[in-house]
Design a protein around this nucleic acid. Structure first.
Lengths: 135, 135
DNA sequence: GCAGTGTTTAGAATAGTTCTAAACTTCTTG
DNA sequence: CAAGAAGTTTAGAACTATTCTAAACACTGC
């Protein structure tokens, strides 16, 4: 039983987005089932194979809109490789360098102490921790 | 007085790179003076204006080689924006979101506790902390 | 159902980076 | 210090990831 309602049209509407068929199809792929990390290309391949194909431009648009609406979080791990993470809660990442795999880990056990105060006139938006590992 | 010798040909040779005029010119821009963060484009603009212009392809080649040789460290903060950092010691970054500015901060005061053990068969290569701040 | 506005689409455009192959340096050896 | 071998540079083409364009289409409110 998912923590959040599987009524995707309602969830999109709540986020201020019209529940078009394309967005609903993408939301289903993204949020049905466990948390995931996707790239635009990867999601496009998936949705192309589905009953409701969606153009690549729309996949990009939707991912950007979902991120802006707080439904997704963008994680940049390598140049020219942007992942979207359906887990928007506080957590950090393992990045497995050779294969480009990304794994979440919860941040509740992790404490970061001794961070300097941010530059004048700025406030902290987020702290990203990426643990890069190799085989 | 720089901590490391300003004899760039020697430093390049020590890193296993032929000290060509182009690489020496780039090394001078990068390592003479304080630590810096550059993008390929930015460094290309700089070196084009110098006495020893260098093509963009060579700037890319040199940055990649310098990074592979451990002379530079690559920092990925935003999709399609790769910075090279002349500071290769242990430290982390502030990223000022609106203007894309990057600032170092030393890691000696920072402690990260409670990191989970890495996935089986892997070892930690590096832990990156990026503190994203907004105005 | 019918506007009216927002969305989707294919394809072109753009940005950043890497590739190619010919010309040119640098290094080694005699 | 000349000659050859090997590594490097270059302009431009190619490539990858992403965004833009403008015409067709679909969701919403009346």
């Amino acid at each position: 039983m998912p923590a959040t309602s599987p009524d995707f049209p309602a969830r999109l509407r709540a986020a201020g987005l019209r529940p078009t068929r394309q967005r609903v199809a993408l939301a289903r792929l993204l949020f049905e089932g466990g948390p995931r990390h996707v790239t635009a290309e990867g999601l496009h391949v998936e949705v192309k194979a589905s009953r409701m194909p969606v153009s690549l431009a729309t996949v990009y648009n939707a991912l950007n809109q979902f991120r802006d609406a707080g439904l997704l979080r963008e994680v940049v791990v390598a140049p020219g490789r942007s992942y979207f993470d359906t887990n928007t809660g506080h957590h950090h990442h393992f990045f497995i360098e050779p294969d480009g795999e990304l794994h979440d880990f919860p941040s509740d056990k992790v404490t970061i102490a001794g961070l300097p105060t941010p530059p004048k006139g700025t406030r902290v938006a987020r702290v990203d921790v990426i643990v890069r590992v190799r085989r």
